[in-house]
Structures are given as C-alpha cells and as structure tokens.
C-alpha cells in the first residue's frame, strides 16, 4: 500500500489573500499528496489542532500580512508542546529576506518567497518527509 503524504495548508492571521495558498494546495494535490485546506484567518491553536487530528507530515503556512515573525514561531512552539515537532514546517508568502534566518532558527524548515516554482516546494516536502 502507498504511504500517502498529507499536508496541511494553513492561512494564519488576518490577511485575506489565499490565492497563493490555493495555488500551492493545487500543486501538492497534483503531486499526489493529500492536502487539507482549512481556510482563512486561522489561529496558531487551530492550525496545530488540525495538524494533530489530521496527522499531517507537513504544515505549509502562507502568510502575507507581515506577522510572520510572530505567528510562524508560535505554530512551531505549539507543535513542540504537543510533542509534534517532527511535523515538517514550511513558510511562504511575502517575507523579507532579512527575516528568513530568524524563522529558520525557530522551527521553520524552509521559507518560499514569491516567484518560487511550485515544483521546488513539492521537492522540498518529498525530501524531508521520510515515510
């Protein structure tokens, strides 16, 4: 039987732009993954609860509001609190280059900014999820 890769695509915080998240969701679907999409304006607590219940291998967070330095580490910390730090965390969206090292130091495996080919994200997930 196949070992399915499951990904939660999440939109935290207050920005209402989910075009990017939907494009990613679609690309991951077409790469043969099961994508759980939970919609806009999720709190970190909602994202983590969904990630645990759905037993995802990866949480991919799209954020365009500028609150990435607060929200992304918060999700990572909550996952850790639940003993789920093994879940791969990815960030994407309008994130300035100078903020990326901070995120990488705080539980985010990789950050993808506008212009990234979707294939790169697929590759990153397949490389880091060991099933």
């Amino acid at each position: 039987m196949e070992q399915m890769i499951r990904v939660l695509v999440a939109k935290p915080g207050l920005d209402g732009h989910d075009r990017g998240a939907k494009v990613i969701a679609r690309a991951l679907r077409d790469a043969g993954m099961e994508v759980i999409y939970t919609g806009l304006r999720q709190t970190p607590e909602q994202i983590v609860a969904a990630a645990i219940q759905e037993d995802v291998d990866c949480v991919a967070i799209s954020i365009l509001s500028g609150a990435h330095n607060t929200l992304l580490p918060k999700v990572a910390a909550l996952l850790k609190e639940q003993g789920a730090e093994d879940i791969l965390m990815l960030g994407g969206g309008v994130i300035p280059d100078e903020d990326i090292p901070f995120l990488l130091d705080n539980g985010i495996k990789a950050v993808f900014t506008p212009g990234t080919p979707t294939s790169k994200i697929v590759e990153c997930i397949k490389e880091n999820v060991t099933k």
């Binding site: 991951l28 679907r29 077409d30 099961e34 999409y37 939970t38 919609g39 607590e45 909602q46 969904a50």
Partner: peptide
C-alpha cells in the same frame, strides 16, 4: 490521475477545531 486530493471540509468547521 495524481492520487492527490484537496480535503476542504474543515473550512466549514473551524469553530470546532480546538
């Protein structure tokens, strides 16, 4: 075709998640 899927039912159930 791809074996993938978009599972979107939770969108309507966000209040229950936590």
């Amino acid at each position: 075709f791809s074996g993938g899927s978009i599972l979107g039912d939770r969108i309507r159930m966000n209040d229950l998640t936590t």
